[in-house]
Design a binder for these strands. Structure first.
Lengths: 334, 334
DNA sequence: GCCAATAATGTAATCGATTTCAGCAATCGC
DNA sequence: GCGATTGCTGAAATCGATTACATTATTGGC
């Protein structure tokens, strides 16, 4: 392996000068610059980045924690973050937690071990206290999730309000037994949506029925299962607010396979407005999140935080959402 | 920041001993182990990984180059790789090239700068020669793509044969003017599929028509555009073999919006058998790739290559595929 | 023409770990 | 009871860069 010393020798200069050329320091004569460049070319030299990181105490790498990449919501979020990151010459370390506490813990340690300059959390399995612990070691931003208990800024949308709107829409369309499916029990996203769901019900004087709340529902396949669970109930729901377009799509497909009419027998609302929402038939009513802006904003905030070196505080940036009303929830009245 | 020296001081031992405890070396007495562990706990010590990497000359990190994460094919591939990687205590550096030559170059440099122990390429923008150049610096595996010109093993399926089968199927269903959409022009995937497409046509004595070959078609939206291009032709195709389920879905949706009957007016075949293939109506005929096995296999081979330190050679592992016949291509006859 | 300021370069310390080597103590075999 | 082996520990070199400081050469002002 060729090192900076080899280059210095070949160029007949000191390592310091070579380093200055690498880092574009001023005060290096053109003549020596040329010599160094030639030597670097001839030796096919590339600086060892572990050494650079160790010495300079920064990594130019940012960790993004996502539960899974196969959920398009997170894929699009990552894409947006990646855009901003590469513009700023930062690398992205993509970490899939798979909704696993321990995996998440391990990835959070990246901040402690100085393997990354900062970290963005898009979902959270561990409790907020332990998160706050990690936040001491380096800048961190919450994106999608949020908690007042953590001294960390958050970029997200108002899931409570969004869920409230979605459920009110179902009620206005005539639904009276509304189910709610979600993924994680501890996530702030879930808690917000659940609160919105419940307040919409009580706001319209509809009693809450625990049978209609289903957790651990993440993807298309889970959606199918959820549908079958609901049809197994004595009193079936006539509307479902799901936490994801994938789930909603799974429900619709299984409903069709079972000759249940959507939306007349069962109205469905998804979340995210992913491409699949307009592919499935009937097209899915859903809540559009400004994913791109969310990812960009989170990354921008992190970059600023890294630059400033000040300790972060709790702060929330709420982004707008939009209820996209499509056929899966329409004309339930009459 | 607390270092190994701080721990050594507090424990009243040398740095060497602390290091041994960290790395689970034998020949450290239980007594000292305890002392070290206590000191580490008390100081909240975590080893600095840049220092570890520099000294040990390995990173336990693997770079995966994908064009985009929003294409589910790559998302699922990554998921499979991630599974094997985490089992082996390896980190994944996910790199999105966005079909950009320069970005790809930069990511390939990770191998030279020793930022990663190995690298998997799932698509390739640059020419094979320059790739071979990078391959000198560390182990590399091609996954999905392949080329005899690069001394690197490849895991993929036989795209030529798959495309041949797909097109023969269209022909058997009665299609006579078959279009072909693909993404990149230089990719080996495309070249293989194109060859299969052409040989299927000539095998059945169907003339090739350049109008029916369309490139730079990647996603749902591109699929819609492609459809509109095809309908603008004087002689429209009666069957389309696309390079991706996303594209095929876009075509189907736009066709429906234009009252074109699928498959009677236009038969469609996708590629990958992504979830969306069974969501769209009519369900999409497509070629199922064993994505999970492909990702796992590629990662396993890379891990082995990293262990062995031998120079790699050209080698191909072909995985089986399956033509999933669904409604988008059925019953064209009569 | 002299002194101060500035530019260009080198020396050596440093980042935080791992690992070789050597030293010492304890154990073993006979 | 003595030499050989084994187990445990520390001193110091090392990985490959960056950078504070020192040194020398050059320029500028008056």
């Amino acid at each position: 392996m060729t090192t900076i010393a080899d280059v210095a020798n070949l160029a007949g200069l000191s390592r310091a000068t070579v380093s200055r050329v690498i880092n574009n320091h001023p005060n290096v004569s053109e003549e020596k610059k040329r010599l160094v460049r030639e030597a670097m070319d001839r030796l096919n030299y590339v600086p060892n980045s572990s050494a650079q990181k160790l010495r300079s105490q920064k990594t130019d790498t940012i960790a993004i924690l996502v539960p899974v990449l196969t959920n398009p919501f997170f894929a699009y979020l990552l894409e947006a973050m990646d855009e901003v990151a590469t513009e700023n010459n930062l690398q992205l370390l993509v970490c899939q937690t798979r909704y696993d506490k321990e995996k998440e813990h391990n990835y959070l340690k990246l901040l402690m071990t100085k393997q990354v300059d900062g970290l963005i959390l898009t979902s959270c399995e561990n409790d907020w206290n332990s998160l706050a612990e990690y936040a001491k070691y380096g800048p961190m931003i919450l994106c999608n999730e949020s908690s007042e208990q953590v001294p960390v800024p958050a970029v997200r949308l108002d899931h409570e309000k969004a869920a409230f709107d979605a459920c009110c829409h179902l009620i206005e369309q005539g639904c009276r037994r509304i189910a709610f499916t979600y993924g994680d029990t501890v996530s702030s996203v879930t808690l917000g949506r659940e609160a919105g769901y419940k307040s919409a019900l009580s706001h319209h004087g509809i009693p809450l029925c625990e049978d209609l709340l289903v957790s651990q529902v993440y993807n298309l396949e889970d959606g199918r299962k959820a549908f079958n669970y609901f049809t197994s109930l004595k009193e079936r729901p006539d509307g479902i607010f799901t936490g994801s377009d994938q789930v909603a799509t799974g429900i619709i497909m299984e409903a069709k396979a079972n000759n249940i009419n959507i939306p007349d027998d069962l109205a469905i609302i998804g979340f995210d407005d992913q491409p699949i929402a307009t592919v499935v038939e009937p097209a899915l009513t859903t809540i559009r999140q400004p994913i791109k802006e969310m990812g960009k904003k989170a990354m921008e905030m992190l970059i600023e935080a890294i630059g400033q070196k000040e300790t972060l505080t709790y702060q929330e940036i709420l982004l707008p959402y939009e209820l996209m009303i499509r056929d899966s929830s329409k004309f339930k009245i009459n």
